[in-house]
């Protein structure tokens, strides 16, 4: 059976709020009902049918075809099911995701996975700034789940993240994992600039020596960690396109900090 499909057929210049395309709508509403729903486009409201061709049947699987970076909040709050986006996605992709899987074939805007509480986001392109970070005013960023970015991520990825795993196959911008509270970020690109500033707990894994604020991170002896083998096997099982097996189980360099804030976080260099 063909999943519910929304194909964007009009060029949109204002941000479209896709949060109203909930999993309940996709699962329970007929094609006509979906077409006649109102969604906000900039400061106006439009029918879904004015922007998208709706096809497929009631399903747990939503496909958004011909997507663009103006489609915000795709997959917001989804607890089950699968959302696939062909093309780019706008800001807040996977906002408060609770257990569903969101796959974006292109790039996503800022705040992807913010407030995420479970599930998986797989971004085949780039991610914007504030990946897995909290919304303005919120205390916690990502709280559980997995985010995989196959290319690069913007600045402040993993800011204030609390739990969960981020894997960025490419480079990250400045200030990755700043004020991190917990969770694990695997950053496999070029040397990140000052990752983990003001981190209190959590784990950052880099494959190249990061540029750390050396005064506030303490370098320990190199050592084997069973945890890294465990993390590797969990990520490899996810089949997310990130081959962590290319990193053998060699002793790791370990930095702890940020001591400026009495933090007990760790930066592992594999």
């Amino acid at each position: 059976m063909k999943p519910r499909e929304l194909m964007l057929y009009r060029k949109v210049t204002a941000p479209v709020d896709m949060s109203q395309i909930t999993e309940q709508v996709v699962r329970n509403h007929s094609t006509n009902e979906v077409e006649n729903m109102l969604i906000s486009v900039g400061r106006e409201f439009h029918f879904v049918g004015d922007l998208f061709r709706v096809s497929g049947v009631r399903s747990k699987h939503l496909m958004i075809a011909n997507s663009c970076n103006k489609l915000n909040r795709i997959g917001q709050g989804w607890a089950n099911g699968f959302v696939s986006v062909i093309g780019d996605a706008g800001d807040f992709a996977g906002h408060s995701l609770r257990g569903a899987t969101l796959e974006v074939s292109g790039s996503v805007g800022a705040y992807a996975g913010c407030g995420m509480k479970g599930g998986t986001i797989n971004i085949l392109g780039n991610a914007g700034d504030w990946l897995a970070a909290p919304l303005s005013g919120a205390k916690l960023g990502m709280n559980d789940g997995y985010i995989f970015v196959q290319r690069n991520a913007g600045s402040r990825a993993g800011h204030r993240m609390r739990r969960g795993v981020i894997v960025v196959n490419g480079n990250v911008g400045d200030g990755a994992c700043s004020s991190m509270i917990g969770g694990t970020a695997v950053l496999l690109g070029d040397s990140p600039q000052f990752p983990g500033t003001h981190m209190r707990r959590g784990t950052i894994v880099c494959n190249i020596n990061p540029r750390l604020a050396h005064a506030s991170f303490f370098e320990q002896e190199t050592r084997h960690l069973a945890f890294f083998s465990l993390l590797k096997s969990v990520i490899v099982k996810k089949e997310c396109g990130v081959d962590l097996n290319r990193f053998p189980d060699l002793p790791l360099r370990r930095f702890v900090g940020d001591r400026n804030v009495q933090g007990m976080g760790e930066v592992l260099v594999i």
Partner: peptide
């Protein structure tokens, strides 16, 4: 107090 909790795939591990 120096123990680290890690939650992977709905399983919690302690370091």
């Amino acid at each position: 107090g120096f123990q680290i909790s890690k939650k992977l795939d709905n399983r919690r591990y302690w370091r």
